[in-house]
Amino acid sequence: MSAPAPDTWILARLRLRDDALGSGLLWVGFAVFVFALTIGVAQFRTIEVSGWEVGSQLPRWFVAGMGVYLATVYLPLYIAHGYTRRESARQLALSGAATIPLLAGLMTLGYAIERAIYTAAGWPQQLQQAHLFDQPTQYPLVYLEFLLLFTVWGVAGAFVGAAIYRHPGNGLFAIPIGLAMLGLAETALSPGAFEFLAGLVGPIGAPAGGSVVVSTAIALGCASVALPATWLVIRDLPMRNQEQ
């Protein structure tokens, strides 16, 4: 009885197939919805701001949910199917690392499509909040911001999900920790969103028109603290017993 040749990256490929394809399809639906809504609103009032910017609040929650899902559903599923926590976590992180740039790209593409629609309709693509970018046409910066946002949200979701899976009671304390981390990263990337936090971050030299490098460093710093923290939670993760 010899095992067939091992398929080393099977877990990552399974997730990529489902998650990348799934989130791509979801994005199409999302984009259609946002643009249809914008055009709908235009029937009643003048469009003065970017609808995509408003809509882009939503996908970060989706990415956080994906993090929760990977940690609480797929990690145990793969452990139950004969993979170690290390193997599963590594491959799930890899699939996340491939899905997030893709999603960031699609979100950036959204601004470009909006640009085309707004130009044709003669609407101003006005931003309401502070970003790493001043204009939605600064695509590399737009892409960088989404990339960092999704990374932080995804890792935060995985961290909170894993903590609650592992400790259904005490794990709830991971929620404020995750939120604090998100607050810090969001402030670093978009200080206007959390005025009170902006005050805290401001002194250590965060943006408000400030340096992209510092913002990036803060966001990456958050992710690189949360990622090992998540690993600490899952490295010994006991599978939950089932109620029979």
């Binding site: 009885m1 095992a3 067939p4 091992p6 398929d7 099977i10 877990l11 399974l14 599923l77 793969y78 199917h81 004969g82 993979y83």
Partner: peptide, 9 residues
């Protein structure tokens, strides 16, 4: 299908 992909035997 999942078991078929993940179980080596």
């Amino acid at each position: 299908d999942l078991a078929a992909r993940l179980r080596p035997h």
